[in-house]
């Protein structure tokens, strides 16, 4: 993987623009981006064919010069064209923006409530809440353990 990334350094880079309802939130350069779509992960290298995709709830990994950044992205769409990646989502959080305590509380609450018998719709809502809490926790734990993403690339 190291060789692959060294190659990419010499080549073009991807420009990632993330737009949220609070404006253009991130502009980042990257060698590779891996994002969670509705039906699995999608990896993007520079020179990608034009694709627009629907995003699911998950972790967005940005590989640049051998380091990995992680963001929590929930839903939205992505537009990929050659070296530009435009991502539109209602929520995109950096590790430092995540309230770990709240995410943990959300997770526990969802878990507790799921044990009880509930309506179909509530279960689905709680699953989403639980999943989002997990994503947040994982993204924010990355702030402490550097190099976590090396096995997932």
């Amino acid at each position: 993987m190291a060789a692959e990334q060294n190659n990419a350094v010499n080549k073009q880079k991807l420009t990632l623009n993330i737009t949220t309802p609070r404006g253009l939130k991130f502009v980042e350069q990257a060698d590779m981006i891996i994002m969670r779509c509705t039906d699995g992960d999608l990896g993007v290298l520079p020179g990608h064919a034009p694709v627009s995709a629907v995003l699911g709830d998950g972790i967005l990994r940005i590989f640049n010069d051998g380091s990995v950044k992680k963001l929590a992205v929930f839903g939205g769409i992505v537009e990929i064209n050659n070296t530009t990646v435009n991502l539109f989502s209602t929520i995109a959080q950096r590790p430092e923006e995540i309230d770990r305590e709240r995410a943990e509380a959300d997770f526990r609450r969802a878990e507790e409530t799921l044990i009880e018998q509930l309506e179909e719709q509530d279960i689905r809502r709680l699953r989403v809440l639980m999943h989002r809490a997990l994503v947040r926790l994982e993204v924010s734990s990355h702030a402490e353990e550097a190099g976590y993403g090396s096995d997932s690339g």
């Binding site: 999608l42 064919a49 995709a53 839903g75 769409i77």
Partner: peptide, 19 residues
Amino acid sequence: EHIKYEPDVNTFIDNVIPL
């Protein structure tokens, strides 16, 4: 037009319109 839509156009529309 060469843009591909993932997973497919209809699913894409179903997701992008609410947003």
